[in-house]
Nucleic acid binder design. Sequence first.
RNA 1: GGCGGCGUACCCAAGUGGCCUAAGGGGGAGGUCUGCAAAACCUCUAUUCGGCGGUUCGAAUCCGCCCGCCGCCUCCA
Length: 486
Amino acid sequence: MIRVYNSLTKRKEDFTPLKEGEVRMYVCGPTVYDLSHIGHARSAVAFDVIYRYLKWKGYQVRYARNYTDIDDKIINRAREEGVPWEEIARRYIRAYDDDMRALGVEPPTYRPKATETIPQIIRFVEVLIEKGHAYTVEARDAEERGAKDVYYRVRSFPSYGKLSGKDIEELEAGARVEVDERKEDPLDFALWKASKKGEPSWESPWGRGRPGWHIECSAMSQSLLGETLDIHGGGKDLIFPHHENEIAQSEAATGKPFVRYWLHNGFVNINKEKMSKSLGNILTIRDVLRDYPAEAIRLFLLSSHYRSPIDYSPEALNEAEAALDRFYLTMERMERDWPDVVYKVVEDEELKAYLEPYTKVMDDDFNTAALIGLIYEKVNEANRLMDRASKEGADDEFKRVMPLMRRGFVELGRFLGLFYRSPEWYFEEKRKRISISEEEIEQMIRERDEARKRKDWKRADEIRAELFRKGIVLEDTPKGTVWRVK
RNA sequence: GGCGGCGUACCCAAGUGGCCUAAGGGGGAGGUCUGCAAAACCUCUAUUCGGCGGUUCGAAUCCGCCCGCCGCCUCCA
């Protein structure tokens, strides 16, 4: 039984999807007006693991993650650059997709765009008006005469505030939004905005206009996944007002519960501070990808629980990379030194029993941090067993356990998106980061071997030190000298 | 001001009533191996979980107060 922390009830609950064996999940994707940062990566990776884990557990999962491709920020950006807004949206959707691919994030089942959901959005707004949850007002500065804005009537939804724990009266009192006399209530939010001159617009019953931000998620999730979702995710900062408003829209329109389990991921901080444009400490996914292997970034992100804040630092990424090296070094040793043992086929039942402790921590609110801890205990154990076997020979227990371990790593890696490569592939990738050629390295190693044969330790150590400066580590093994990237 | 979260070793980070006399990674000290290293392994590095009280047979885990940090309340992953 999977248990999840539900932001709505603020408790961990047993996870039972509405329809047995099927999970419908929706996660708020990016507004595509700029390159995505490491915080977007965290959200995407966290829900990627949840998605994969649910599938791995045997659920049939339908997962939607949207692109908000129409928004003030996109329009502003287009204006600044003097290009059509569509171009901005297209450019950053592509950039986001590239980043996700680099990070090994699986594409969701559906990737809807707001601009491709306009008819559903319009229909949704109409329903809200029909049911008395929305009203139109005369638009200001509209391009088209007589065009209307549509607002959601927050007071018409009694449980408004149930997700964010906010009290409508207190929100009212502390409202920082500028007063707009056309609105019945300062808290009312836009469902549809009449477009101004030069803005993108669509035909609607209220004249040419464009959708508000919150409505697109309600409309997209409903049209793709139905009226009640099992899981809805996003960053913690979306709880209010975005997700609160989604609930108000969807539940007012359908009369049914919108979401069974609300999941929210924590932030990536830099020096304990939230990343923000104003602080100028935004770190794009690309920035980080330039300095570290994508898998190390994933390991860093998954080494903390998804709800906790994590602090980004070069040291933290270096540690993640070192830990990954350790894993692949061990895997390499297993496959290279004990091929007859580790590749032995393991029975499904046996594997299942072996993985039990691992799935137990994942079942507990997707605790990837604890899982990674367990994996590294096994890395240690694998090395210990191999140390012993190489001295005393491989006994039956060794032959039984080693294939399970190898297979276990691979299996767990399937939903973590980690530990799934061959060691050759992993180290090959690291080699791309160094400037010295393999021929040069081999040449220097041969030279060093000569020196070693002469017992010219001084010269041998010089060569080793020189390679080290170039990012190459040498290891003298009984089978000869091997090298790898630092 | 309202709402929410966090504070575990030198650093990162699990654990949230008894498997904890507290995982895992990094770092440090010593050792095995080695020409010396590296890698790997072994031992050590929190009798203690921000502080003070309380509940309990039993608390890092529950409750209260205090201290410190952070987020949301406006666009935001």
